[in-house]
């Protein structure tokens, strides 16, 4: 075939462009700080590195394209490893179009936050991992915080938290703090709690009730699980579903769908801007220090 080198040159060019665009897309997400919406903090470094690797491969493909064009494919040695370019134009278009699809979606559809829509699909757990029932009406800290080998860290954390005047549910330890509050609820009833998240509602809630939720991701948003705590607020109707709020209130109990769960009696709720890092992650250092 006479113009085989031209065809190969176009193939390499298409590949270089696609690889370059993937790399550019990652850089674009890093620049706009939207990478946080896709990838958990601890995985972001390797995603950024993969952009570098793709730029390098794209550069090589561009060079191969150029060489095929100018030398007529005399030096085309890269194709001796059992790979082959698509045989027809139609197939090539299909292949490269397929790779362009995620890029197209990536650049055209605006970025939004994961919110109630996905939380409804995934189902919010209001009573996570309820395994150790605290003994009642005791004063000694160890009796208030009974534990086995694996809840020991929660018991220890609970003993620290209960000494504080206000229990702040921080982003760093969002899941761990909620689990501790839930496991050792008797110790925390009546304490002042603050946390922030998006407003989540489901059918079986009362009109004054809503949940303050966050998505927890450990690698990427495909593994996002919604976590939430029930809240009760007299002016709940002023808050729209999916609004971001910072709430302060005291911890109490409520019965929900036949299960006794913890609930915050909200005294103050302030609308806030969604944080730059909307997701929380399991704290892998928890209990290790």
């Amino acid at each position: 075939m006479n113009n085989r080198h031209v065809v190969m040159s176009v193939h390499y060019l298409a590949r270089a462009l696609l690889l370059g665009c993937f790399a550019f897309f990652i850089v674009h997400l890093v620049r706009t700080e939207h990478l946080n919406l896709y990838i958990a903090g601890r995985m972001q470094l390797i995603v950024k590195l993969s952009a570098l690797a793709m730029y390098a491969i794209a550069a090589q493909q561009l060079y191969a394209s150029f060489r095929n064009w100018s030398d007529g494919g005399v030096h085309d040695s890269s194709c001796d490893c059992g790979h082959e370019m698509p045989a027809t134009w139609g197939r090539s278009l299909l292949l490269y179009g397929w790779f362009a699809l995620p890029l197209l979606i990536g650049f055209t559809v605006p970025d939004g936050l994961l919110g109630s829509d996905l939380a409804t699909a995934k189902g919010v757990q209001f009573a996570p991992q309820q395994l150790v029932k605290p003994l009642e009406s005791t004063v000694a800290a160890d009796l208030l915080f009974p534990s086995d080998a694996f809840t020991e860290v929660y018991a220890e954390y609970g003993k620290q938290l209960v000494k504080r005047p206000i229990v702040q549910v921080t982003d760093k330890r969002f899941i761990e703090t909620l689990t501790t509050l839930d496991l050792y609820r008797t110790a925390f009833i009546g304490k002042t709690i603050t946390l922030s998240g998006f407003v989540y509602r489901e059918g079986s809630m009362e009109s004054r009730q809503f949940a303050v939720g966050r998505f927890a991701i450990s690698c990427c948003s495909a593994d996002a699980s919604p976590y939430g705590i029930m809240a009760k607020f007299d002016k709940a109707n002023t808050l729209e579903t999916d609004d971001w709020v910072a709430v302060t209130g005291t911890l109490g109990l409520a019965s929900y769908n036949g299960i006794e769960i913890i609930q915050i009696d909200v005294s103050n709720a302030v609308k806030i801007e969604p944080p730059k890092e909307p997701y929380v992650s399991p704290d892998l250092d928890f209990g290790m220090e």
Binding site: L29, I39, M43, G106, G112, S221
Partner: peptide, 11 residues
């Protein structure tokens, strides 16, 4: 959908 689709690819 966009966030899930791209996040799996990116990861």
């Amino acid at each position: 959908f966009k966030i899930l689709f791209l996040s799996i690819i990116l990861e």
